[in-house]
Write a protein that binds this DNA or RNA. Sequence first.
DNA 1: CGGCATATCTTGTCAATGGCAAGATATGCT
DNA 2: AGCATATCTTGCCATTGACAAGATATGCCG
Lengths: 206, 206
Amino acid sequence: MTGARGYHHGDLRRVLLTAAVVAIEESGPAALSLRDLARRAGVSHAAPAHHFGDKPGLLTALAVEGFDLLAAALQTGDSLLEMGVAYVDFAVRRRAHFEVMYRPDLYRVDAPEVVAARGRSRAVLRSAVADLPPGPGAVGGVAGDALAAWSIVHGFATLWNAGALPDEAGDDPRAAARVVIRRLFGSRVDARGRAAPPARSPRTPA
Amino acid sequence: MTGARGYHHGDLRRVLLTAAVVAIEESGPAALSLRDLARRAGVSHAAPAHHFGDKPGLLTALAVEGFDLLAAALQTGDSLLEMGVAYVDFAVRRRAHFEVMYRPDLYRVDAPEVVAARGRSRAVLRSAVADLPPGPGAVGGVAGDALAAWSIVHGFATLWNAGALPDEAGDDPRAAARVVIRRLFGSRVDARGRAAPPARSPRTPA
DNA sequence: CGGCATATCTTGTCAATGGCAAGATATGCT
DNA sequence: AGCATATCTTGCCATTGACAAGATATGCCG
């Protein structure tokens, strides 16, 4: 672990991953080139292969990191509303990770590390929705609430990142997300659900 | 316009576009290869370039077609609920088009034909939302309603296509979408808005 | 300290791709 | 008939992903 640039780079794996984030933010995941990453890191064109095997391998590592970062980001919001805002905020600020995570044709979605990390982030969302006081039109129960919440927040984030939203949406994704989420859940969503009701939530997220 | 396979193919442009749809459905838009399309169409590897210039050019044409198909599909539903279901249905059945449409790094989003076609599909959604009876928690007015509706429907469709939804979502995207949409708008959404109120909607989409 | 197994990185190579240029062939217009 | 143009082909080059073989550093064990 020298960190210097001898024959052994020191922390090439990490350097390549952050270089990938930069490159994806510049030109999207489709245009990602392993050789370009190697150039940015100052190593030979075949060095990345040792750490990640191939391109899907690198993006798999990036997706795993993304799901873990997402789980951590979601933990910070204590109400479902704030958790939704955190989801959108994650998608916008860690755009490269987010774009890869939901593009199954780019990496190995079934890799065990991916399944585990995705499960972790999903558990966080689930526990927050489970603590939500039941609303009037609760057709599908908790699963329906979770699906609706996830959908609206994911859709908003995706459309925002794609630049598909008209100008009226403003330039603050967090504020705009807040309005949209409140429209789904009304004021139910402001309750600090995850702490207030003593019973109802059997799963504490690890 | 012979349709036969002489030197002139007859309808190569259309053949290439549908071949692209097939290829994208098989392996995703990232793996799309112009040369592979040419092979499928039985022409030389440089033939596609004449019709579309380059790869982004081909995907631009596909996106335009997609936005027009989407606008047409949305017209069929007469309530906002059914329009949302139609959106999801479009995303699932015309998956290749849909995946390209919201991937700005793959094609020329600012091409005038794209802007026009996207505007057409957006107008259809807008007119339906405008006719919706105002609900209780209407914070942002019509624009907020439209944003929320579009977000939830787009997010659901995207997650469905990405295979990100857990099994509880079932195997019928239309039914699951219906549940989710109703959770956003309640019973307001069942009103046959676009026909009932005589005023309010000045734009008849072409 | 010496020596070997291993991890890490490099160099060299190959097939496939996107894109360009130049040429061949069909079509339409007058 | 004859020319302009649209359509398609062949040939070429730089870049890329992937693999193989070799070079160099690191750790381990005596």
